[in-house]
Amino acid sequence: MAVSTTPEPIDTTVPAERQSATGRTETVPTQKRGVGARIPWGSYGVRVLAIVGALVLWYVLSATGFNFVVSFENVPDPIVVGKQLLVLLHSGEFYTHIAVSLRRILISFTIAAVLGILVGILMGRSRIFADIMMPYIETLRPIPAVAWIPLAILMFPTEESSIIYITALGAFFPVVLSTLHGVQQTPEVYVRAAKSLGAGRAAILRHVVLPGALPSIMSGLAIGMGVAWFSLLAGEIISGQYGIGYFTWNAYSLVEYENIVIGMLTIGGLGTLSTWLVKQASKPALRWQESNQ
């Protein structure tokens, strides 16, 4: 599994001011675009169709036992998987796996978010601190979550804590780097404006640097949430009992192909859902960006 924790390049520049050529008109375009309106319903339709298309293709490939370069001979078709899913949904254990994983994600993500934002801000505000932290971040960041498993087991007292460590570490890097990036991008003119209005260092941090960095921090959190999920999967190899990652691994050793597929899709679904939740949660704080168009 290729694990990349590199955050996507994030565009945090405040969108260029739209200078109306004739500034004399006082009428201003004020059409309120809801957030949902960014993705028109037609677009949702296309997305649903894409998923349906994938299911159909999957069915055809498995049912015909497609075997050219990639083999679908042993891949269960979507109907078999769907039936097995119904069975699992009626068993309590499947929910336990999900609940345990969700709990780990919640704890790890919270740790990663708090530490990542804090360290990112400190690095952005203090040259020395940034110089101290940067070598650690640069060398630890490329290490995939799976590679941490042996050390994590040795270092941490319980299985649970080593899983949370691995998960949180993965989520930490995108958060810290995005926060740092956002803090460093603060336009000088805002800082000067604040100073000339009597703001001190603390007020500048609170009223200028942080709100300016917020879009970047928020997208770091969204990326961090995604990374948390695939780090979790690696971490749960350690677990001897529960977790959706453990469920998937276990299915592999027991050669339960349907369960493997279900495990994978569950992780994908939960990952998407939680990333979406993070984005939704950040919307109110970024309302000021919406009217830029």
Binding site: V14, A193, A194, V208, L214
Partner: peptide
Amino acid sequence: GMVFQQHSLFPWK
């Protein structure tokens, strides 16, 4: 008090 050439209003306020 300062008024700048570029717009310097805090966009988040």
